[in-house]
Simulated scan of single mutants.
Amino acid sequence: MSKKPLFIRLAQPTYGAYLLRHHHIQAVGMEQLSHLAPPFLVMGNHVHTFDPFFVSSASPIHIRWVAGAYLFKMRGLRPLMERWIQAISKQQGRSDLYTIRTISEALKQGDVVGLFPEGTRSWDGEPVGFDMAIAKLVKIFKVPIVLLNLEGFYGLRPRWARKRRKGTGTIRVVEILSAEDLGKLSVEELYDHLTKVLGHSNREYQKENPSTYQGNRLAEGLEQLLYLCPDCHHVSTLASKANTITCTSCSYEATLDAFDQLHIHKGEHVFADVAAWHAWEKKIITSEQGTDLVYPEDQGVLFQKGEERRLRTLSKHFTLHMEAEGFTLKTKEGQTYQFAFPDIGSMIINAKNTVEFFHNQQLYRIRIQQRGSILKYVERYQALQKGETV
Rank of each mutant, 00 (worst) to 15 (best):
A17I: 09
I25G: 14
G29M: 10
Q32D: 07
Q32S: 09
A37F: 04
N45V: 11
N45Q: 04
P52F: 06
F54H: 08
S59P: 03
A67M: 15
Y70P: 01
Y70E: 15
L71V: 14
F72Q: 01
F72V: 09
L77N: 12
L77M: 15
L80C: 02
I85G: 04
A87Q: 02
S89F: 03
S89T: 10
Q91Y: 05
Q92R: 15
D96H: 07
T102L: 03
T102S: 08
I103L: 07
A106N: 14
A106D: 06
L107E: 05
V113C: 08
E118V: 09
S122R: 00
G125K: 08
P127K: 06
P127W: 05
V128Q: 15
L137N: 01
K139P: 02
I140V: 13
L156S: 07
R157G: 03
R159L: 10
W160P: 01
A161P: 00
R162M: 07
T168L: 00
V174H: 00
L177A: 10
L177M: 12
L177P: 04
L177R: 05
A179C: 09
D192L: 13
H193C: 11
T195P: 01
T195K: 15
V197K: 10
S211C: 12
L218F: 07
A219E: 09
G221E: 10
G221R: 11
L222W: 05
Q224C: 04
L226D: 11
C232D: 14
C232Y: 06
S240T: 14
S240R: 06
N243T: 02
T244W: 12
I245F: 08
I245R: 08
C247Q: 04
Y252E: 00
L256C: 10
D257G: 11
A258F: 12
F259L: 15
D260L: 02
Q261R: 13
H263P: 01
K266E: 01
G267I: 11
E268L: 13
H269I: 13
H269A: 13
V274A: 15
W280V: 13
K283S: 15
I285F: 13
T286M: 05
T286A: 00
G290N: 05
V294P: 07
D298G: 10
G300W: 08
V301H: 07
L302G: 05
E307W: 10
T313M: 07
H317A: 13
T319A: 08
F327G: 04
T328V: 15
Q338T: 15
D343K: 09
I344T: 10
I349Y: 02
T354N: 01
V355I: 15
E356M: 11
E356L: 14
F357G: 06
Q361L: 12
Q362F: 04
I366H: 04
R371N: 14
S373Y: 08
V378I: 09
E379C: 08
E379L: 04
R380H: 14
Y381S: 09
Y381F: 14
Q385L: 11
T389H: 11
